[in-house]
């Protein structure tokens, strides 16, 4: 796995600082993150397997089966909408195709046996380098009636829009704006998709993995301490 900085056309602000765009990804091979030394210990040949995300088999356990069955009943197009079901660490994640997300949310909110009244959180993760569709938008839904939580996840490539769920969950308004601001994912159907945390004229989307952290060296008692993204990393 390697990170390719600046694959986008425009250079993000701060990119000319020469800082590495990200702390190097956790190494797949060797230990201590050390490369290019005359390693005679044999540690350098250790290979760390990268876990893949698998479809979880039925039964999922707990209330997860009930949720899936209820969704299947209420939303017949489920086989097209849901790409993958993952149960991990006692949490259910439904990977939903982008074009179905609004309909799935609507059913999740309104169906009597689902009733996910509250959309707790909407945020995004940038899986640059490990997934073709690098941006994963995650919706954490909460059912107050049944006291359940489910995560919906939508994966899109750079430049591919995700329909806005503000029509179903108005609370997603500012959170989608934050995702647009930080990652550059566009949400068609959003009433006012503008930057929210960064200034309006900011260039680039700061929480993308190919956007540098930036920072300046600090002098302390005569010694110069480099900015956090240029320090030595042990990993």
């Amino acid at each position: 796995m390697s990170i390719q900085p600046g694959t986008e056309g425009s250079v993000p602000a701060g990119a000319e600082l020469g800082a590495p765009a990200q702390t190097p990804p956790s190494p797949d091979k060797g230990m201590f993150g050390v490369q290019g030394t005359g390693d005679v210990s044999g540690f350098g040949r250790l290979v760390r397997p990268r876990p893949a995300v698998f479809d979880s088999p039925r039964p999922y356990g707990g209330y997860f089966d009930d949720v899936y069955d209820a969704l299947e009943e209420a939303y017949p197009a489920i086989s097209e909408a849901i790409e993958k079901v993952v149960v991990d660490r006692a949490e259910l994640t439904l990977h939903v195709r982008a074009e179905h997300i609004v309909d799935v949310c609507q059913v999740m909110r309104d169906d009597a046996s689902l009733r996910f009244e509250l959309c707790s959180s909407v945020d995004a993760v940038d899986y640059l380098g490990s997934d073709e569709r690098r941006f994963h938008v995650a919706y954490q839904l909460t059912s107050m009636t049944y006291r359940r939580r489910v995560r919906l996840e939508v994966a899109v490539a750079d430049g591919v829009p995700v329909p806005s769920v503000t029509r179903v969950y108005p609370t997603a308004d500012w959170q989608e704006r934050e995702i647009y601001d930080m990652f550059g994912v566009v949400f068609p159907g959003h009433p006012n998709l503008t930057r929210i945390l960064m200034p309006d004229d900011w260039e680039g989307h700061p929480q993308r993995k190919d956007y540098p952290l930036g920072g300046v060296p600090v002098e302390y008692k005569g010694a110069e301490i480099p900015p956090p993204d240029q320090r030595r990393v042990y990993q």
Binding site: S26, T142, Q235
Partner: peptide, 20 residues
């Protein structure tokens, strides 16, 4: 509700942490 969405890539650093 204060929610923490934490993602790890298996390393010693967080891959992403989001605060709701």
């Amino acid at each position: 509700e204060l929610g923490v969405h934490a993602v790890s890539d298996g390393g010693t650093h967080p891959y992403r942490v989001h605060y709701r």
